[in-house]
Design a protein around this nucleic acid. Structure first.
Length: 110
DNA sequence: CCCTTGACGCGTT
DNA sequence: GAACGCGCCAAGG
């Protein structure tokens, strides 16, 4: 993998997130081997918004809070997209986050 | 080249 | 158990 693949890898993992499921920045970072760089994952997702192939709305922080909703086209866009996939969102927070949580480490089998 | 900011996470208080 | 602070990494000014 090239060094530039970091952002690309983040996109790849995000693309693998099934509908109705959500994951955290830290989980993706950990899967990529840079678990302490969760912030960088968030930065990568910033560019992912342009990549409409990447469901950035399925990526939230470790508590299930839609911290990045402010970076979308519309702050309400993220919530709508999630609810459209069956993910309940209340007060900018994913309901039953643990239940909808999709861990790449487990799901992808590391 | 140095300083500040930011879609995070974890340890301590 | 909630609130606060520190640490990590990259980008922008």
């Amino acid at each position: 993998m090239d060094k530039e693949s970091f952002f690309n890898d983040v996109y790849e993992v995000a693309k693998l997130i099934p509908e109705g499921r959500v994951t955290s920045y830290g989980a993706i970072a950990a899967y990529l081997g840079v678990k302490r760089s969760a912030r960088v994952v968030g930065w990568a997702m910033n560019g992912a918004v342009s990549q409409h192939e990447v469901p950035a709305h399925r990526v939230v922080n470790r508590v299930g809070l839609l911290t990045g909703k402010n970076h979308f086209q519309s702050p309400n866009r993220m919530k709508e997209l999630l609810e459209a996939e069956g993910v309940k969102v209340e007060k900018d927070q994913v309901v039953n986050f643990k239940k909808h949580f999709w861990d790449p480490m487990v799901e992808l089998g590391l």
